[in-house]
Amino acid sequence: MKIAMVSVLVKDPVKAFKYYTEVLGFEEYMYSPENYIAIVKSPLDGDGTTILLEPIGPGGIEIASKFKHEIYDMGMPVITFSAPDIQKTYEELKAKGVKFKKEPTKTDYGYEAVFDDDNGNYIQLIEWNQ
Rank of each mutant, 00 (worst) to 15 (best):
Y111C: 09
I3M: 14
L93E: 07
V6S: 12
L53V: 04
L52S: 11
K66S: 14
P43Y: 01
P13W: 02
Y20Q: 02
T80I: 06
E22H: 10
Y20K: 00
P43E: 04
T80Q: 15
V78F: 09
N119E: 15
Y72C: 10
S65Q: 14
E22C: 09
T21P: 10
I79Q: 03
F17A: 00
V10K: 02
D85E: 09
Y122S: 05
A83N: 03
S7T: 13
D47V: 13
D117H: 06
D73H: 03
E62Y: 10
V40D: 02
Y90S: 12
E28T: 09
T105Y: 01
F81K: 13
V6W: 08
L53E: 05
P104D: 11
M30S: 15
E91M: 07
D73W: 03
G75H: 00
I63L: 09
I86F: 02
V23I: 15
K66I: 12
V6C: 07
I126D: 11
L9F: 12
I37Q: 03
G25C: 08
G46V: 10
E127F: 06
L125P: 01
T105L: 11
P13K: 02
P104C: 11
L24D: 02
D117P: 02
I37R: 07
N35H: 11
V40F: 05
F17R: 02
Y111A: 03
N121W: 10
Q124S: 11
I56S: 09
G110C: 08
I37S: 01
I61K: 14
L52H: 07
M74A: 13
E62K: 15
Y31Q: 09
G48D: 09
M1P: 06
Q130I: 10
G57M: 13
W128I: 11
